[in-house]
Amino acid sequence: MTLTHHPRRAPRGAAAAIAATLLLAALAGCSDDKETMASWAQKGGKDQTVTIAQDVKTVIQESEPSSRSADHCRQVLADVKAARAYHPMPDQGTRTVWNESLDRLDTAATTCVHNAEAGTGGASLQEAIAAETSYRSFADSYGRQVNAKP
């Protein structure tokens, strides 16, 4: 018995759906929606990083307590909270180092507030240095990402 093979065409609806899906996938690849570290920085991320850098300096200075240590360190805590609430960085590796920097700065500022309120000093120099070291690691990663050629 001879079987005749006649190629069947895909139903028009299926072919149209496949074509539409491929077109949408191609357009999505060309979209500007994919945020880069450079665009994140331009849209306000850089301001966050500059504020946190200044806050690292503040907790180091507050290791020598002053009458305003608690107020200064409360402001650092508010800045850390704002940085955490800001739109996350698109690069996972840099975001991880950033979050570690924020954690260490939060610890140093919290200690500063507690010590200042108790009248026992200001920020722990050891915690302040840990925050600075962590921030430097972040700054290196951030600089490489922001300056990377697409």
Results as ranks from 00 to 15, higher is better:
Gly122Phe: 11
Ser31Arg: 07
Gln54His: 03
Trp98Glu: 09
Gly93Arg: 10
Ser39Met: 06
Phe138Ser: 11
Leu77Lys: 15
Pro11Lys: 01
Thr4Ser: 09
Ala20Tyr: 03
Gln75Glu: 12
Pro90Gly: 14
Val80Asn: 09
Arg9Ile: 10
Met89Leu: 13
Arg68Thr: 15
Gly44Asn: 08
Leu24Ser: 07
Thr4Val: 14
Leu77Trp: 12
Thr36His: 01
His114Lys: 15
Ile129Ser: 08
Ser67Met: 04
Ala17His: 03
Lys43Leu: 08
Lys43Tyr: 02
Pro150Ser: 11
Leu23Val: 13
Gly121Ser: 03
Ala25Pro: 02
Arg95Asn: 12
Asp103Ile: 05
Asp79Gly: 13
Ala25Phe: 11
Asp91Glu: 14
Ala116Asn: 14
Ala118Val: 00
Asn99Leu: 10
Asn99Arg: 08
Gly44Arg: 09
His114Ile: 14
Ala70Lys: 03
Ala82Met: 04
Ala83Leu: 10
Val50Thr: 09
Pro65Met: 02
Ala41Gln: 02
Asn147Leu: 10
Asp32His: 10
Arg9Tyr: 04
Asp79Gln: 12
Thr49Val: 15
Pro90Tyr: 01
Arg104Val: 01
Ala85Glu: 14
Asp32Arg: 08
Ser101Arg: 08
Glu132Thr: 10
Ala10Thr: 12
Gln145Lys: 15
Lys81Arg: 14
Arg68Met: 06
Ile18His: 01
Asp140Val: 12
Ile18Gly: 01
Pro7Asn: 13
Ala123His: 03
Gly44His: 08
Thr133Asp: 11
Ala78Asp: 15
Glu35Asp: 03
Pro90Gln: 09
Leu125Asp: 07
Asp55Met: 11
Ala118Trp: 02
Ala123Tyr: 05
Ala17Asp: 07
Ser31Phe: 06
Ser137Gly: 08
Glu35Arg: 12
Glu64His: 07
Ala131Met: 01
Asp103Cys: 01
Asp32Gly: 13
Thr36Tyr: 00
Pro90Trp: 11
Ala128Phe: 04
Ala28Glu: 04
Glu62Leu: 01
Ser137Ala: 09
Gly143Phe: 04
Gln54Glu: 04
Leu24Asn: 00
Ser124Gly: 06
Ile129Met: 12
Thr4Gln: 08
Ala108Ile: 07
Gln126His: 07
Leu102Thr: 11
Ser101Val: 05
Gly93Leu: 07
Ala14His: 06
Glu117Met: 09
Arg95Glu: 13
Ala14Tyr: 14
Gly44Pro: 09
Ala17Met: 12
Lys57His: 00
Ser66Thr: 15
Tyr135Phe: 15
Pro7Asp: 12
Ile18Glu: 03
Gly44Cys: 10
Asp140Cys: 03
Leu125Gln: 15
